[in-house]
Write a protein that binds this DNA or RNA. Sequence first.
RNA 1: GCCGUUGUAACUCAGUUGGCAGAGUAUCUGAUUCGUAAUCAGAAAGUCGGAGGUUCGAUUCCUCUCAACGGCACCA
Length: 635
Amino acid sequence: MINLTLPDGQIKQYNKPVTGEFVAEDIGSGLAKAALAIKVDGLMKDLSFIIEKDCNLSIVTAKDDDALDLLRHDAAHVMAQAVQELFPETQVTIGPSIENGYYYDFAREKPFSTDDFDAIEEKMMSIVDRDLKFIREVWSRDRAIKFFNDKGEVYKAELIEAIPMNEDVTIYKQGEWTDLCRGPHLPSTGKLGKNFKLMKLAGAYWRGDSNNEMLQRIYGTAWADKKQLKNYLTMLEEAEKRDHRRLGREMDLFHIQEEAPGAAFWHPKGWKLYRTVQDYIRKKLEIAGYHEVNTPQLVNKSLWEDSGHWDKFREAMFVTETEDKSLAIKPMNCPCHVQIFRQGTKSYRDLPLRMAEFGSCHRNEPSGSLHGLMRVRAFTQDDAHIFCTEDQITEETKNFCDLLMSVYKDFGFEEIIIKFSDRPEMRAGSNDTWDKAEQALTDAVDAAGYKYDLNPGEGAFYGPKLEFVLRDAIGRDWQCGTLQVDFVLPERLDAVYIGEDGKKHRPVMLHRAILGSFERFIGILIENYSGRFPFWLAPLQIIVATITDEVIPYAEKVLSQLKFQGLAASADFRNEKINYKIREHSAAKVPIIMVLGLREAEEETVAMRRLGGKNQEILALTSAIAKLKSESEFP
RNA sequence: GCCGUUGUAACUCAGUUGGCAGAGUAUCUGAUUCGUAAUCAGAAAGUCGGAGGUUCGAUUCCUCUCAACGGCACCA
């Protein structure tokens, strides 16, 4: 007797093995029609899967999120079949579902072109129309390897050889087309529907290894219905409109040019924004007990050799030779901070010592990785190092997490994910040290009461780290903050303090940043707010716009009073219609336009119009200024 | 760094099958003094990313190179 527990708690009993399809039919013909797959003890299986023992069973229909995953995986298969029907000389490799869609990597001598997309999509449609059944078969390894080798599919054969001996080699057929695949799949290609679209073409290394040959990847998106597809495409358009590179130019914030790849030229408004962010952080750090320092840009390579960075990162360091010395432009600040720590004798009474620097760093990032402000070669971190005892790690971690959360909240980010990255393969320090560091960080983050996901093997070479990921207004994730526990660098650079016992001890270093780099964080802010910054952040807060030349004297007075209060105000006294001015400054996303005409001049008032608002607010000049002044305070 | 694509006025883009380089927006000048998202008229604006080559002639064809874009890889 086989007992199947359904999601509602109901138990179905059968006296012999049954397929998912059979159970669905047994529950109801409507469900049978909608059924796409089943979940056996939480694992997705084909509808045709034969259930042989007791389990929790649920029937997956188009309503389930999981179904979307299957659908995308099917789309990858259908695309691969379409490509091979059109271009028989193409070899297939792998094609998984991913967020919002899927891709498939192909090997073919002649590159695909986006001009091929129409033909491929059309062929995919026809495969959907053929409504081919996905048929699962288990083959012997030898048979599978021979089959694919005979077809000239050497990549597939290589994949099969890599499958562990104890695992089945499963093959899926759709009509005449055969692929190695773990599955599961929808019942047939017809279930895929036609709500897919090929998106982009890209190179991708075989098995993700840059030593291997490069394959051609085609990305597609696929959805359960037309509306979802349309929403997704609209969202992409939205994202493009708020691209920080585009807004940076349109709003005159910064530019990047050929002569300085990976480095920003900050324009007055962009630099004002930058300074506002920096002033805000500086204030937060001061309150939190940090001491700001500043350290040299050029540091002899010997320091980087001692710290271990030279070994691992010398390729990415800019080095200059002078008088037989090799000086490296600093790629990070920690070794310099240790030098400050080492000046004079430190006592346990000095700990925890929180040393902060708006550290300007340069890294020779690979040319292909540069991306607007998000990935640059010249950047400034909101960096700090906390020198403390092992006992203080927990408290310092908690304080830091709290500080970081409050900062993110002030910038309008509510949803934060924490990742815990443990020891990487390439690392400094003994396993004992790593055990200790990982344990200390685990204890600290647990004690601080924050939840986290494990991110195995992604730690820094000198210690484990917490990574803080924030989600922006349109649902994209950005990793910004970090906290790293480091027992290695104090040892390598010989940092010591005198303990209560009068003996020398090693401090622990906590490397931490909240924003990460100002450049990148500002890029994220631009995109998150779509350029419509909250009043306190806006680099240009107020435009004073006149209706006729007659009121210029009054407008001058308003402007100077605003400026006197430290508000970022600017004048528009041009001989233009008020409609024209409002249109222009609204498009420039200035939060407030003050319209001044004869009436306002006479009554000492201002007509205030807020960005996005339809109505104006008439206020006495003095109260308008007081109100705006308080709105422009840091949150 | 690797694969693919792109580079024409400040911006967005058209164009030249090798023969004087085009539009809209922005800019400048003049007129207009106007009450909440585009007033009218005129002018100026380009080493067609850079360097070589082929050609009577190259922005167009070829080679090299730089940068950007989309991915991959990398990211202390």
